[in-house]
Design a protein around this nucleic acid. Structure first.
Length: 594
RNA sequence: GGGGGUGUAGCUCAGUUGGUUAGAGCGAUCGCCUGUCACGCGAUAGGUCGAGGGUUCGAGUCCCUUCACUCCCGCCA
């Protein structure tokens, strides 16, 4: 028999009555009646109420033990009387009469309470993460994470995938995020990089003939944090398949995602089959390549309206003439909303750094007219045209933004969220998935005006390779795709370019010489010239999937030991200084800019 | 790198127009209490009001600087 326990803290039931048992756990709560003491004993599995009174010689001693100390209890299970049953506990029909106890681990005065629903500052939570993790909600989130990952593993094995590990110490690559670097002792002055993703390795696995690979892969990117983005490291379900087309990947991943979300959440899926939206359409209708499809508001383009004679909104007309775009959002039946509703949105837009959102409300008397600050600039014929384009009716309002295309896309995208939240249009009990497809292979860098890869440089361009017009690279689309759920980018993938000549060609468009490609991607470009199968894959973000399933807005709520926003681990004190000896061995000197 | 929010007891927070000795709940310590499950009652301890500077007869409160945490922009193929 185990010396610490015969049962865990959620096991005991009526049928155990009058058994002598041993429990071990943390003191969750004490209720001290002076001559009678209740102790809620907690472990990973649950809570059991234990009881002792002054007739027991260890009563006084137990009374004084701190909450969150770990104790072992020898006692007898007894049925509770009818009126003292606690239905909120799984073990609530019984309790344990304590015979004797032993302290296994004492607890100092707590820096923060453990048994409470109260929220408290993240700084202290992270510093005492081991206490924070005892609290029910986050404890359950972490257990959920474990279950989701093991479920995914099983599904992947059943689908015929093999799990492989890939190196953590690898080489730095151009393109993409900032690398974390690790100095090499044996090769002074040289550095390893932590992988931003096992991208090249998984392609090499395909070249090696393994056909279907997956890994719950740690990925490292030295970029600034967001609520849904850990600084430093995160996990992807990295997968790759040989001899596949885009649709084959979609089928596998969509099935997997649907199974995971159905198993671990009660929320409904908005679409049984994920809709496919082209990048271009998404940017137009949602202003973003990660649209929240729960949000019914759509964006329309009204640029052409502003070249009409009967529209006299001169500020916009002038901007349109010099190449600006006008986009709008229509809100249904908002004619009776108070002025403050509209002005708040305009003010909010200005706070976001935009020049504001003009608005009017469509009214119909004998003919169509527009009310509101800029309503007078539109003739009824122009308004009818706007109604045709946007599907607006009388009683609806139109919010307008004008500016360079990127600016307009950004502000209308944010305004979609803002207005939908203000009007409470988003159903929180739904998961709305979609595929974003047909990404452009290249884009123009705003600042340098140079052509660069818009996503993954290893993606396969669309169309027949002989027919691709490389002279207009901005028109080349790629077999590149994302999964988006509720406005969160869940994964990104592509059919890969496995043809070395084509790879050189594309890299040359992005300004890389052949020799540079050979040097930077030596492992892969070399491998592709020894018989590479057509292949493709995708990498859903594990942390974000669990975040959605746990209904959390912050990724740290589903991460066991997260770093803070400045990429510091407050519990382990990382990053930290190293001593001279270590630096010397690596041939490094510290030069801190002030 | 830039913008917003927050910072008062171990924890969560209140603190009026700038005015006496900065308060409450939880926690801690001590005492009372034999059926609680957020047990109850009483008492005690606990404060660099994030830090520095300024205005003022007087600053938790007003001004300037700065630090920490957080949210957002940039960034994240």
């Amino acid at each position: 028999m185990n010396k610490y326990r015969t049962h865990n803290c959620s096991e005991l039931r009526k049928k155990n009555s009058s058994q002598d048992i041993i429990l071990s756990g943390w003191i969750n709560k004490k209720r001290d009646h002076g001559n009678l003491l209740f102790i809620d004993l907690r472990d990973n599995y649950g809570i059991t109420q234990c009881i002792i009174d002054k007739s027991n010689s260890s009563f006084k001693e137990l009374e004084k033990i701190q909450l969150e100390s770990v104790i072992k209890i020898n006692g007898k299970v007894v049925e509770r009387s009818e009126e003292t049953i606690n239905l909120e506990l799984q073990t609530g029909e019984v309790e344990v009469n304590i015979d004797s106890f032993e302290v296994l681990g004492t607890c100092k005065e707590l820096p923060m309470p453990v048994f409470t629903d109260q929220e408290y500052a993240e700084e202290i939570r992270l510093k005492y993460r081991f206490l924070d993790l005892r609290r029910k909600k986050i404890h359950d989130n972490i257990i959920l994470r474990s279950k989701v990952i093991s479920f995914i593993r099983n599904e992947m094995f059943q689908l015929g995938f093999l799990e492989f590990q890939t190196p953590i110490l690898t080489s730095s690559s151009p393109e993409g995020a900032r690398d974390f670097l690790v100095p090499s002792r044996l090769n002074p002055g040289k550095f390893y990089a932590l992988p931003q993703a096992p991208q090249q390795f998984k392609q090499l696995i395909m070249v090696s003939g393994f056909d279907k690979y997956f890994q719950i892969a740690p990925c490292f990117r030295d970029e600034d944090a967001r609520a849904d983005r850990s600084p430093g490291e995160f996990y992807q379900l990295d997968l790759e398949m040989s001899f596949v087309e885009q649709e084959d990947i979609f089928e596998v991943v969509e099935k997997l995602i649907v199974n995971v979300f159905k198993k671990f959440s009660l929320k409904k899926l908005m679409h049984a089959k994920f809709p496919k939206i082209s990048y271009e359409e998404s940017m137009l209708k949602y202003g973003s390549d990660k649209p929240d499809l729960r949000n019914p508001l759509l964006i329309s383009d009204l640029t052409n309206i502003f070249s009409r004679e009967d529209v006299t909104f001169e500020i916009f007309k002038k901007l349109v003439k010099s190449g600006s775009k006008v986009r709008c959002i229509v809100t249904k039946n908002t004619k009776d909303k108070p002025r403050s509703f509209f002005d708040n949105i305009d003010k909010w837009a200005k706070d976001q750094g935009a020049s504001g959102l003009a608005y009017f409300t469509i009214e119909k008397d004998k003919q169509i007219s527009a009310k509101g600050p800029v309503g007078k600039f539109f003739s009824s014929a122009a308004l009818e045209e706007i109604m045709k384009i946007t599907g607006a009716n009388d009683g609806d309002s139109v919010f307008l933004a004008c500016g360079k295309i990127n600016e307009v896309e950004k502000i209308t995208s944010q305004a979609r969220d803002k207005i939908a939240n203000d009007l409470d249009l988003i159903d929180k009990n739904i998961f709305a998935f979609c595929w974003i497809v047909d990404y452009p292979m290249f884009e123009k860098d705003e600042i340098t005006n140079k052509i660069k890869f818009s996503h993954n440089p290893f993606s396969m361009p669309q169309g027949n390779i002989k027919d691709i017009n490389f002279d207009e690279p901005l028109n080349i689309k790629a077999y590149q795709y994302d999964i988006v759920c509720n406005g969160i980018e869940l994964s990104s993938g592509a059919i890969r370019n496995h043809i070395p000549e084509l790879m050189y060609k594309l890299f040359s468009i992005a300004g890389y010489e052949k020799t540079q490609v050979d040097e930077k991607f030596s492992g892969m470009i070399n491998a592709l010239s020894y018989g590479a199968p057509p292949h493709g894959g995708i990498a859903p973000g594990i942390d974000r999937i669990v975040m959605l399933l746990a209904n959390e807005k912050n990724i740290r709520e589903v991460t066991m030991f997260p770093m803070n926003q400045n990429a510091q681990d407050l519990m382990m004190n990382a990053p930290s200084n190293v001593n001279e000896e270590q630096l010397k061995e690596l041939g490094l000197a510290i030069k801190i800019k002030k």
